[in-house]
């Protein structure tokens, strides 16, 4: 099993959905999309073994993958949708008690750090957000005091949902559970780039906004067109005050709501039934 399939506990969630062991999920017979992007769901340099199947969240990555000369795609919906199915009550609060904004900073990863004007972003968030702000940092930024402190000093509640894991180690399989709980508590979700967490937030009823310095990440591959292309393709999801009905339609498309499968269909499709890594 490719170690990316464990990221954020995706394989664990799908295994549980399919009635399989969730602590040590069986092997997935290919590659599971682990984050949203404007390409085929994987980064441009991702290596695949020949004949591998690629399970995407929605149909658009499949179509984009074909122009890369790749085949063997199937859209199954985002694992997040399966988590919503499994945890309909986790963190749910009455609608009138939801408040504040959960703001996600575009995050780097183990191989690349972000660079940008955090001060300016803080000012813009203060100007924009009417209520309390919870600021979410991925651990790569959370563990950089100069970044974490700048948001703490701004008076934001700074959180990190954990580590997605790498090379089969350090996977926090409750990562998305915590994120779900936090999103269900907030009224708004925002980010400085259109990214996975924005879609997740919209899927649980948060109003969405995307604004602020999008920042840059070292070694970002421009092959797919980067954030500029994202802005061109989804202008309706960029701004501080968006049409939330339109935004939810896009979110449903990108998370692949229509592609989500029943367990009996998903199980034989992706799991080979052997319980090991």
């Amino acid at each position: 099993m490719h170690h990316h399939n464990h990221y954020y506990g995706h394989s664990h969630i799908l295994a549980r959905y399919c009635g399989l062991p969730q602590v040590h999920p069986p092997r997935i017979r290919g590659y599971l999309q682990h984050g949203w992007n404007v390409g085929d769901g994987w980064n441009p340099q991702h290596e695949f073994f020949d004949g591998a199947w690629r399970w995407t969240w929605s149909d658009a990555p499949r179509r984009r993958g074909h122009i890369l000369g790749r085949r063997n795609y199937q859209a199954i919906g985002a694992p997040w949708l399966y988590l919503l199915d499994l945890e309909p009550d986790l963190g749910v609060v009455p609608e009138e008690e939801r408040e504040g904004t959960l703001f996600f900073l575009f995050h780097g990863w183990e191989g690349g750090k972000i660079e940008g004007d955090h001060k300016r972003l803080i000012d813009e968030i203060r100007e924009t957000e009417p209520g309390p702000v919870t600021f979410s940092l991925y651990y790569t930024e959370y563990e950089r005091p100069e970044i974490r402190n700048s948001y703490l000093d701004a008076g934001f509640d700074v959180v990190s949902f954990g580590k997605r894991g790498f090379a089969y180690e350090g996977t926090d399989r409750r990562f998305l559970f915590r994120q779900l709980k936090a999103l269900r508590k907030h009224k708004r979700v925002a980010a400085n780039r259109l990214a996975t967490a924005v879609f997740y937030g919209a899927s649980v009823g948060c109003d969405v906004a995307v604004y602020g310095d999008p920042m840059a990440m070292n070694g970002e591959d421009p092959l797919f067109g980067g954030n500029a292309r994202v802005q061109r393709l989804w202008p309706e999801l960029h701004g501080k005050d968006l049409d939330q009905v339109v935004a939810r339609e896009v979110v449903n498309q990108e998370l692949g709501t229509a592609w989500k499968m029943p367990a009996q269909e998903l199980r034989p499709l992706i799991f080979d039934g052997v319980t090991h890594d």
Partner: peptide
């Protein structure tokens, strides 16, 4: 000028 729907990488 870009308009929505550009293809990349492609030629």
């Amino acid at each position: 000028r870009p308009v929505p729907g550009e293809m990349r990488p492609w030629s």
